[in-house]
Write a protein that binds this DNA or RNA. Structure first.
Lengths: 385, 385
DNA sequence: CTGAAAGCGCTAACAC
DNA sequence: GTGTTAGCGCTTTCAG
């Protein structure tokens, strides 16, 4: 897409030229104009007590006339070690999953008067490092991170210096800090058990980067279900490293092109689900799809999903960080948030017949509203394949 | 959703208690430890020239040992009027439309070394005011705003003080500043003409808050098409103020419950489209839907949309802001980005027969890749209903 | 190549 | 209720 514009662009002289950049008024100038001391002006503008009504009014008028704004940089430098910002490092704000996390975090921080600086890393460990460094220099009051890297020892000293550090979505490496994750393994297991109960045996898996712990945990859950059902050779049907829609669609197509193609797919996140749905759209024999992550049109499309609430995860993580700021010095905890299998039927599609399965499988139906058990970072252990 | 956690929360003493908050090392301490002056330490850590290799190395080692981080607040306070942050004010990061804008802005700012502070306003003018004030105090290097309020004169003095201010998605009020908007009116007109050409006459409209200029412009485009086709009484089929999915679904249901229900719907943004799709899912006679904004599963669902690229809009706006920072002092411009009608057919659905329409209508088909014409904020004039 | 002094804009701590 | 003094942590300026 291109666009026309109604004015020619001037090359521009580097380093903040651009016409006369007028002077920004300082507090001292406001004070002078109002005929008071610097400190009185400060008090008036910060609406501190012990300022006469008339004086305060005069100062505020002077400030308005000058177009004055308090300088938060100076205020925060002077009055403490941390700024009134919080930092959030995620994979990609453009991805609905992360953007809902961001929304939840933002709401809580906003309620506390903190503005949120968000950085997307595209799940690149190096970019995570750079983003975090920037936030630390900026003296954020709290730091929330969806880890891409494997080792977060570099944040240990920050924690020791009193910075609240909270991890989301994936456990951090080699650091003992507050962490909020989903019950990836149980959620995935429930999804695959659902497909097994519906009579499927050749169940394909389309997943994200294999280096991501969430991916590994979800594959582990898939394996749990398959092994419990006594299904062999499921590893053939696993396609990982599908990080975008096209890769996911291709992964799904590859699976369906196998000599004995899968009759169902488990897609391990929202992008994989969308990609797979594209791949199977219009196919005569559309395989059944169960996806991890709920999405807006899943009900319309009748797609069964492993649902959870990313915004809530963001809120909880933010609240934990704020509690630390308020002096909570209890030991770091890992909170495992439950998932919920939401079974849906494609419109105009008869649900496939449910074949009888062994009892051990039948007993473990959808984990509706399962209560999370605390688990200490065991998700990292999910080593499968 | 609830979750259990593995540790009790302590109420916490206000104001940054939380165990012994150790001292954060300063540059002076690093310098002392390395046995150099403060200024030499500064030069070494900022990798400025004129520092002996050995000296630099010694300083950086001392910094590492102390866990030192430069303080961006202090640096930026000392070295200029603006920080290395940029501000973005949008409706809701959790909404894919805005989050893609945010992504585009973030990419450009990141390339320039600016971190992005994002605030969601829920399209509330008062919250816009508060968010902007916070960003200004923080001395953001540039400010990008999706306007919720009607009057942005309060930003004129900031612009005069040299702050690049750019508006996105909707024109600002009473201020002459760079603006990037969509060709809402033409896009809407193309959408409705498409439906008219397909033989529909009773075309419902489900839209957002009527106070939003984008809504008004899209209704105007709807009106353009209806009037050109000589269709009367279309106003009966307009439902506005559907700001969330439920409201949109309800709006669609209301329309379909009319004595003479519409046979097609034009939904004026992604939320309205999703809501309407929910409302019509499973209906025996599903009305045809054309939506403003493309979305991930539109192809799978076979929904015709008015497509455009929010991320690109974000990038362009960010680039314009950065150009101003680099001294571009050309007159403010308004860039109208084109939309593109993407026609899709629902899977398993025969496209409805195309009735013959008057020639004036046939001549104005889908505006595929229409080139935008510059327009000076005329979108605000879209007064319909 | 290195250092000493000054001060960015504001608030803390104490006067008065 | 108001003013004075000092200084947050760093970079700038100017000397060596």
């Amino acid at each position: 897409m291109t666009a026309s514009s109604s004015g020619p662009a001037t090359p521009g002289n580097r380093a903040g030229g651009g016409g006369p950049r007028p002077h920004r008024p300082t507090l001292q100038e406001v004070a002078d104009r109002a005929g008071v001391s610097l400190k009185t002006a400060s008090r008036a503008l910060n609406r501190e007590p012990h300022v006469a009504e008339a004086t305060g009014e005069r100062v505020r008028r002077a400030a308005d006339e000058l177009g004055f704004r308090l300088n938060a940089l100076a205020r925060e430098l002077r009055s403490g070690a941390t700024s009134t910002t919080a930092g959030l490092v995620i994979g990609d704000v453009g991805n609905p999953y992360y953007s809902r996390i961001a929304r939840g975090v933002e709401r809580e921080m906003d309620a506390r008067g903190l503005q949120l600086i968000t950085s997307s890393t595209d799940d690149d460990p190096e970019r995570e490092r750079v983003a975090v460094a920037g936030l630390l220099e900026r003296r954020v009051a709290a730091l929330l991170v969806v880890p891409s890297s494997e080792d977060h020892r570099y944040l240990e000293s920050e924690r020791a210096h009193g910075l609240p550090v909270v991890f989301l979505d994936r456990p951090a490496g080699h650091i003992d800090a507050d962490t909020f994750v989903l019950d990836d393994r149980a959620g995935a297991r429930a999804a695959v058990e659902h497909l097994l109960k519906a009579g499927h045996e050749r169940i394909g898996l389309v997943g994200d980067f294999s280096r991501l712990s969430t991916h590994r945990a979800r594959v582990a859950g898939h394996a749990d279900a398959m092994q419990a059902a006594g299904v062999q050779g499921w590893e053939t049907y696993v396609r990982a490293d599908c990080h975008d829609l096209d890769a996911a669609a291709q992964g799904a197509r590859d699976l369906l092109a196998l000599p004995e193609p899968p009759t169902a797919l488990f897609t391990t996140n929202n992008r994989c689900t969308t990609g797979a749905l594209r791949a199977v759209a219009g196919l005569p024999a559309r395989p059944e799809i169960v996806g991890f992550d709920d999405f807006d049109l899943a009900d319309v499309l009748g797609v069964t999903v492993v649902a959870h609430d990313p915004e809530e995860m963001g809120r909880l993580a933010a609240r934990a960080a704020l509690a630390r700021l308020d002096g909570d010095d209890s030991p770091p905890r890992t909170v495992v948030l439950p998932t919920r299998l939401v079974v849906r039927t494609a419109p105009g599609t008869e649900p496939p017949p449910v074949r009888d399965r062994p009892a051990d499988l039948r007993s473990s139906g959808p984990r509706s509203l399962a209560v999370a058990r605390p688990r200490e970072a065991t998700l990292l252990d999910a080593e499968v394949r």
